[in-house]
């Protein structure tokens, strides 16, 4: 008997290969999902959003269940980080902010945990040091079903479950990424950077402007 029967997760979906596969693996294990997409316009275009919605629709069809979809305007948060915070820490500040907003949605929607497509050391922001410091932004559990997969395994799985052809569609990837993101982040420095902006207000504004589908 599966022990995940009554579990509900909040999936952070980005439109790339990883997060839809992570969502698929959770759904396959009888976990109910709600999805949240962080819209990085104007540092991208509308394609990541439309792709994310298509990916969620595909998962809905596959598992014959409705997945509520939250759209968060994250571009305005990125602008505040750029104006006020240390450039190299921007990816991590962004990730921690996404987790903090997602945590509030999870509480509202009675989700037991967050689900991400994060993958150990796949990109500079996903080192063990950065993932650890990202986790410390929230109290809710973060599940990463793809943590130790390699990229080829993820892409092959995406092909098997038909998310690949949507994920590969043309888009503009997030241009808010710094040229040299920090890989060995220090928590005290992160907190110092976060103290330069009004995090609580940013979270509330993001939630107030959220669109739900």
């Amino acid at each position: 008997m599966k022990s995940t029967k009554m579990a509900k997760g909040l999936l952070l979906i980005s439109s790339g290969f990883d997060s839809p596969v992570a969502g698929y693996l959770m759904l396959k294990n009888d976990v109910d999902l709600i999805a949240v997409h962080f819209d990085n316009r104007p540092f991208t275009n509308d394609k990541p959003l439309t792709k994310s919605r298509k990916l969620i629709e595909l998962l809905e069809q596959k598992f014959d269940k409705k997945i509520k979809f939250y759209q968060i305007d994250h571009g305005q948060n990125q602008i505040k980080f750029m104006k006020n915070c240390e450039n190299r820490y921007r990816c991590l500040l962004c990730r921690r902010m996404m987790f903090k907003i997602a945590e509030q949605i999870a509480i509202k929607e009675k989700c037991n945990f967050l689900v991400t497509g994060e993958n150990l050391a796949q990109v500079a922001s996903q080192t063990i040091f950065n993932l650890t410091n990202a986790d410390k932004a929230v109290n809710i559990k973060i599940l990463r079903p793809l943590l130790c997969y390699d990229k080829l395994e993820i892409i092959n799985l995406a092909k098997d479950i038909s998310t690949h052809d949507i994920s590969i569609e043309a888009a503009i990837c997030c241009n808010a990424v710094p040229r040299n993101p920090v890989t060995r982040s220090k928590l005290h420095f992160i907190k110092k950077e976060e103290s330069k902006i009004n995090i609580k207000e940013m979270i509330q504004e993001s939630l107030d402007k959220a669109k739900v589908f």
């Binding site: 104007p42 540092f43 275009n45 602008i79 750029m82 104006k83 450039n87 503009i172 241009n175 808010a176 710094p178 040229r179």
Partner: peptide, 28 residues
């Protein structure tokens, strides 16, 4: 100028252009 930050500028010139201070441009 559409977006003004010390690191990235977004301007309108036949559509949006993202300008990084280190010189990379992205024509959207």
């Amino acid at each position: 100028v559409k977006v003004d930050t010390p690191i990235i500028l977004i301007i309108n010139k036949e559509g949006e252009i993202i300008i990084h201070n280190y010189g990379d441009l992205l024509f959207k």
